[in-house]
Amino acid sequence: MHVLDLDYMLGLLPILLGYLPLTLEMAGAGMLAALVLASLLAVVRVQRTPGLNALAMLFISFFRGTPLLVQLFLFYYGLPQILTFLVAINGITATILGLTLHFSAYMAESIRAAIVGVDRSQTEAALSIGMTQGQLMRRIILPQATRVATPTLMNYFIDMIKSTSLAFTLGVTELMGATQKEAASSFLYFEAFLLAAIIYWIVVEILSWLQRRLEKRLNRAYQR
């Protein structure tokens, strides 16, 4: 047993922090794409769009019903064997794609619940003055549903940041991959992974703090 090598950790810190932007970028891109896809899925589910609704249900069921790691391997290693144009896909893109599909399935259900939660009479009011379904969604329902769903969506974002570490299994040198490489050359596995854990932890704590502030603001919305 050895004592914690703090000097090594301090030296490693700037190196690992250098990989943080990539982690945040993958999560950020995944989140934005997932929000768009999840909103579309939710609207299809709420409006029970013929045909599309069944597809959306299948999609949601599959991506919630299988592990993210399996999905990532399927996209990165499996699919290119069948769809040969995907051979050029890199690990980062595959990760973002996987995170998007996986998390959009979960997020779609929260957004759907939030949409259904908006008082039905507002829908009738909007229709009664001649608004179209699209205008109703964009201007009345989604703004309110977004507020209700935001805390849950923030949780998914936090989860997504942690899940970017799986990109390591697709050969991407992100925070986790870099830690692994550093540890393998120094043999100081405990220090290296502890430091990686602390970095994730701090990022998540900052986001949780933002989330609490945001929630307070959202609770005050529309009350003035």
Binding site: Q122, A125, I129
Partner: peptide, 12 residues
């Protein structure tokens, strides 16, 4: 135009 029993204003 319609006026509803429960007002049905846009809450947002």
């Amino acid at each position: 135009a319609f006026v509803f029993q429960n007002y049905a204003l846009f809450a947002n």
